[in-house]
Design a binder for these strands. Sequence first.
DNA 1: CTAAATTTGCGTTTTGATTACAAAAAATCT
DNA 2: AGATTTTTTGTAATCAAAACGCAAATTTAG
Lengths: 138, 138
Amino acid sequence: MDRNALGILRQYDLRHTDTRENILNGFLQKTTALSHSDIEVYLNDGFDRVTIYRTLKTFLDKGIIHKILDDNGGVKYALCKDQCASGHHHHDHVHFKCSECNETFCLEKFLIPEIILPAGYQRKDINVLVQGTCPKCN
Amino acid sequence: MDRNALGILRQYDLRHTDTRENILNGFLQKTTALSHSDIEVYLNDGFDRVTIYRTLKTFLDKGIIHKILDDNGGVKYALCKDQCASGHHHHDHVHFKCSECNETFCLEKFLIPEIILPAGYQRKDINVLVQGTCPKCN
DNA sequence: CTAAATTTGCGTTTTGATTACAAAAAATCT
DNA sequence: AGATTTTTTGTAATCAAAACGCAAATTTAG
C-alpha cells in the first residue's frame, strides 16, 4: 500500500482541494519534517499563508500529520503512520534534529522507552527531541 | 545550601541589577517553568520586554536556566541545578506539561532513560516533554 | 445545472522577536 | 567620595509570525 495524496484525503473524509493535495505531496516527497515556512517555500508562493495554517490545522485535527517540537520555539510537522486517527495518535517514536543542517527526522523505527512519572501524573502524549548531528553531517 | 538571587549572580559572575534579581526571584519562587510572558506578568510591567529577552539569553548562556520546549511553538525556562555551567548542561530530566492548567514542571528526579539511535546519529542534547494531567488537575 | 456547504484569499490587526542607539546604572580606580 | 570605564537598560523602529472576519471561489450533492 503506497500512499498518495488523493487516497489520504478520501481516507480521512476531506474535500479534495489544490492546497491540500499539494501540501500532502510535499510531505510524501520529503523525508524530513516540515515547518510552515518550509511548506511555503515548497509551494513556491502559490498559496496563501493563511490557507496553509488552516490546512495544517485540519491535518492535525484529523490525525494525518503530527507535531514535532523545535528547540527555537517553533513547530514542525510530519505525516503520521496509519495507526493514527483523530484523537488517537500512536507515534511514540524519537525525533532527531541535526544542529548542522537543521533538518528534523522522524526515527520511526526507534521507539521511546518507557518513561516513569511521579504518582498522580497522567500521561497522554509524549514528544522526544534528540539534537545532535545526523549521518550526512558528521 | 539554599539559593538566593544575589548568590547566583555572584556565582556566575554577573552584575547585580534589578532586572536580574527580580527575574531570578521569580524562578526561585515558582515551582513551574516560566515563559517570557509569564515573567512579564510576574514583574508587573516593571521592566521592558527587550530587557527580559536579554536577561533570559544571558541566563541561558551562563547555564543558569534551561529551555523547555512547548507544544504550541513556544519555549519556557526553568532554573538549572548546580551541575550546569556555561556550555555544560546536565538536565536530562523529564518535563511535564499539564493540558488542563497548562503549567509545565521539571520532574528533576525522573531521568530520561537511555534512547537508542540509528547508526550515524550523534546525540548532543535531548528534550522530553510529556503531556497529560498533573496531580492537581485529575 | 443549481444550491448548499466548505474552503480559500485578502485586508486588517495583534503579538512576538530583533536591532540600533542613547541614557542610565554598576563596578573599578584614585 | 568622585571620576572613569564598562555593562546594562529603555525607547523607538523594524520585521516576521499568527489570528480573525468577511466576501469570493470552489467542491460536493441533489
